[in-house]
Design a protein around this nucleic acid. Structure first.
Length: 526
DNA sequence: ATGTAC
């Protein structure tokens, strides 16, 4: 018996007969009892011995968790199932007897999954917080959950949340917009060309962005030549190069302030694109959530297929952002030779989910080793599910990303954040190596529609108030209200939460000059 | 979020 083990308190449990549950007895399990059922000092043996002595059962052979019906078989089950105040039902071979209460809680759920919150207490939404806790404590295999400062309620699962799991994959925690992300592209425009009233001219130039790009053959070639992937099928490839709805946009920005050496330069004009995998990703989610299915065991054929499709949706989403950028730059810089898309630096990728070791190993490179540290233990395989959050490590290399955008709602600044990995955040683990990927809703869509429609008139081009604001191209009437800045949390407050937590440094900001949402091109734009 | 479900 190790000294450390003997110091830990025993676990109090209750054992009862599965067949006659009024026959019960308390049992204290020493902390050094083994969860491995084949060990000579296993909890299983202690439980069986106690059952024979106190409950007078001749041949105990199976054990269930009362109220859940989960059978304890392997070491993992014993590890998870045995905790203070649990009631174990001892069976002589018969199946579990009793109702399964709390059917939403998976037998492999982790009721002690730790949750970290990055939002300040004042900004926390009760409903979203409940969703965060319920999800963390009822889905199987979760080992770490994070509420980002943009945490807000989703239909079933929260948005602005990160969930780390082992052995299980949960497609709904990633959502339908697989691979949704942001990228900055350099333009050749000078700030003088987009400042003040010139923003209107720039906005007017942005046409031909709606609808399919060129021909099916051209789209196929784009996906194959540029991205080395065959398409997702014409049903979905038809929308490659389109922005989409919701929080997707493209925005022309001036870099107002930025620290030197992080990839963006002060005064330059950039294009920030946020979009995802459109109908393709959503079709994948649909396929793997038939009949309410939420969780896939990692070694199942289904999980392996999902991961493959997930990766290809991520690549498709990246190709989509690049094509959106190409379409915008064609309007803004006509006559320029082809842009080497994807090779434009300051290119930040956000992939919703990534396989990793947990704890993740933060790689070091010669020039960054003073601010990062390697995790000493290699960890075991884990899956990071992100929704409304971006990774702080490059998925390929595990090197810290130098900068990430934190866009506000349209017209508000985009912060330039440098992810941080201080020991106070367990080197980035506490925030699950992720940062909020936007300001997040503070007002439901319905509420925004009802309260803000008084304030805004729907028009094709929203003029900035004052000379330095943003021209907004938004020809879908409902979106004008729904996506209004007032419906969102303040981006500075969200950024301040990330900074206060130690997850990021604010290294600069961009001023949005033209924010493009959508245009109604059927009637020529008005 | 979505070439959407009732």
């Amino acid at each position: 018996m190790s000294r450390q083990a003997s110091r830990r308190p025993p676990t109090r449990i209750t054992i009862a007969l599965n067949a006659r549950q009024t026959q019960r007895a308390p049992l204290l399990l020493p902390a050094n009892a083994s969860t491995d059922p084949s060990s000579p000092t296993s909890i299983r043996k202690l439980v069986f011995k106690a059952a024979q002595a106190k409950l007078r059962i001749g041949k105990p052979s199976r054990v269930f968790v009362a109220g859940f019906g989960a059978e304890l078989v392997g070491e993992e089950d014993w590890e998870r199932g045995v905790r203070n105040d649990v009631s174990l039902l001892i069976s002589a071979g018969e199946d579990y007897i009793g109702v399964i209460r709390d059917a939403g809680v998976h037998p492999k759920a982790n009721p002690t999954c730790p949750i970290h919150n990055l939002a300040s207490a004042a900004a926390l939404d009760e409903h979203a917080l409940t969703q965060l806790r319920t999800t963390a404590h009822s889905l199987p295999g979760l080992v770490h959950a994070v509420g980002q400062p943009n945490l807000h309620p989703g239909t079933k699962f929260p948005i602005g949340a990160v969930f780390v799991s082992q052995r299980w994959i949960h497609p709904p925690l990633i959502g339908g917009d697989i691979g949704c992300g942001m990228a900055w592209y350099r333009t050749r425009l000078s700030r003088g060309q987009v400042e003040g009233d010139r923003g209107r001219k720039v906005a007017e130039k942005l046409r031909g962005m709606e609808g399919a790009w060129r021909t099916a053959e051209a789209r196929e070639r784009w996906l194959e030549d540029e991205w080395g992937m065959c398409g997702a099928g014409e049903e979905w490839d038809g929308s490659v190069g389109t922005i989409g709805a919701g929080n997707h946009f493209a925005e022309i920005q001036v870099v107002e302030e930025v620290e030197e050496g992080c990839g963006l330069a002060e005064g330059e004009v950039v294009l920030l694109v946020r979009s995802g995998s459109r109908g393709y990703g959503s079709s994948i989610l649909k396929k793997y959530t038939a009949e309410g299915q939420v969780s896939l065991k990692e070694d199942s054929a289904e999980a392996k297929e999902y991961l493959k499709e997930h990766d290809s949706a991520c690549r498709w989403a990246k190709a989509n952002r690049n094509l959106i950028a190409l379409r915008f730059l064609s309007c803004l810089e006509p006559g320029e030779p082809a842009w080497s898309l994807g090779k434009k630096d300051a290119h930040v990728e956000d992939i919703h989910d990534a396989r990793t070791k947990w704890p993740p190993v933060v790689a070091t490179s010669e020039d960054t080793n003073e601010r990062t540290a390697s995790s000493p233990s290699p960890g075991i395989d884990a899956y990071i599910h992100r929704k409304g959050a971006a990774p702080t490590l490059s998925p390929g290399t595990c090197l810290p990303l130098s900068i990430l955008p934190l866009p506000g709602s349209r017209g508000t600044p985009t912060l330039i954040l440098a992810p941080q990995f201080p020991s106070s955040t367990s080197r980035g683990l506490d925030n699950a190596v992720s940062l909020a990927h936007g300001a997040g809703r503070s007002m439901s869509r319905a509420k925004a529609l009802s309260t803000l429609s008084q304030k805004y008139q729907a028009s094709s081009l929203l003029e900035p108030r004052g000379g330095k604001g943003t021209w907004v191209v938004c020809e879908a009437k409902d979106l004008v209200f729904e996506k209004a800045a007032e419906a969102y949390k303040d981006v500075e407050a969200v950024g301040a939460n990330l900074v206060a937590f130690g997850a990021a440094r604010r290294v600069g900001w961009c001023r949005a000059r033209v924010s493009y949402k959508c245009r109604d091109e059927r009637g020529g734009g008005r």
